[in-house]
Design a binder for these strands. Structure first.
Lengths: 231, 231
DNA sequence: CCTGTTAAGCGTAAAAATAACGCTAAGCTA
DNA sequence: TAGCTTAGCGTTATTTTTACGCTTAACAGG
């Protein structure tokens, strides 16, 4: 069956940049999939695929990420739409890129349709990527770095329960600069968006830290009152 | 002539939110066009139209804005891609929205193709809009408000030569809050991105203000040095 | 020509935030 | 039990922000 239109139409895809944090190795990682179809067969690429009629762009992005990597139910936000002519050898294809943030307990990958395998790669040790995916990834990285300072999206990269040191490590990794632990914790507590748990870390080699959760209700309430999140 | 594809494909449009500032009336305005074709014939809408194969999304947006409003050579930035199912009565259509910022000397409108007429409307006095254009406009407004505080895009809404009072008025209008003129000017000068001209205002009823230009070279240089624009 | 009005622009002081750093307590490891 | 490392409470200096005063400049009106 085929579909005919009076005017030329583009293929429409979604591509996803999936970020995760490795707190042990202290690096930011991204999921890549190995393509098993042309073009760029055998090359690493961002997960993605064509949008279907009847689904929203966000549903399409979430579906493609789940199908190609097994990752689901994560933070997902639209990044930018890439539409340069000739960006895809197959013809006119426009891609709506998204980025996803994945907590450590959601890191498990299952490569399924359209991909031989899916793997985590440190963002500073990437192979050559298919299409314009290196460019898309750079845009996503810039977006993450920027938005981390004015929206509480970093919490999506941490476990539900985390320590202040882990939060600081996240910021140091993504922003690429050392932060003072005493000033960082004072700053974080001044934002008043954390809920202290009656728990401390286990299995650590030195003094165990207190654990916290991000209080989304409190954050929304403070936002309505005009207060801003700024780190 | 028709085009056939193995799979269903969406129509792809660009829509533009064109912002301009009325310094006399002290309001932010947006350009709307009156549609002269179905659907929504006779209703006001954002300028826009279908993307053509072979042109980039940005070229398409700039072309549609020029064709429908006469506005050209302005600041243009991608906003968000709207792709909910059934957002367009004609069928599957996805829209890549842009926002444009127009200096006062570029405000002149000429309605040409696909639009009966184009007019400026204050953003707080809008008619009912076609499609999901009211939603698109709200997103653009939020984007402008946010980005104005961390990037020097506001200068695109001012004349090439402007006074500090005019810059402050811009911020007060868009952010919707009064600012202290003494602190505002101290803050602006501390950013060190303005070039003072050897000119003062003319045709004003009281003490004429000094005129300035935004120094884009200086700003880029400071950005490379890690300094940030923040108002 | 003088007075009144309004805006531009230079300024001070207090409060708040940030940066830099010290030090003790806690707890694991050998 | 001692040593080492980290968490976490703290102080101080510096910078930024906020609040506001006041003088100068210049036009309008009588």
């Amino acid at each position: 069956m085929s579909f005919s239109y009076e005017f030329e139409r583009p293929g429409l895809t979604v591509d996803g940049v999936i970020f995760g944090l490795d707190l042990d190795e202290e690096n930011l990682q991204v999921v890549l999939v190995e393509r098993d179809v042309e073009p760029f067969e055998g090359m690493w690429a961002l997960p993605g695929g064509f949008v279907r009629n009847g689904e929203s762009l966000e549903d399409a992005a979430m579906r493609e990420l789940r199908e190609e990597t097994g990752i689901k139910d994560v933070f997902l936000e639209q990044l930018y739409t890439f539409g340069k002519p000739n960006r895809d050898p197959r013809g006119w294809v426009v891609s709506v890129a998204y980025y996803a943030l994945v907590a450590p307990d959601q890191h498990h990958l299952l490569a399924t349709t359209d991909a031989r395998r899916a793997e985590w790669f440190p963002v500073n040790k990437l192979p050559k990527l298919a299409f314009d995916h290196a460019e898309i990834l750079q845009v996503a990285l810039q977006r993450l770095r920027g938005k981390l300072t004015y929206a509480p999206i970093g919490f999506e990269l941490l476990p539900d329960k985390f320590s202040i040191r882990q939060l600081q490590t996240l910021y140091e990794i993504v922003l690429g600069q050392k932060l003072d632990n005493r000033n960082f914790r004072k700053k974080i507590f001044s934002l008043d968006v954390l809920k202290e748990l009656n728990e401390i870390q286990t299995g650590v080699a030195h003094r165990a830290a207190r654990l916290y959760k991000f209080d989304e209700r409190k954050y929304k309430q403070l936002t309505r009152q005009g207060l801003t999140f700024e780190i």
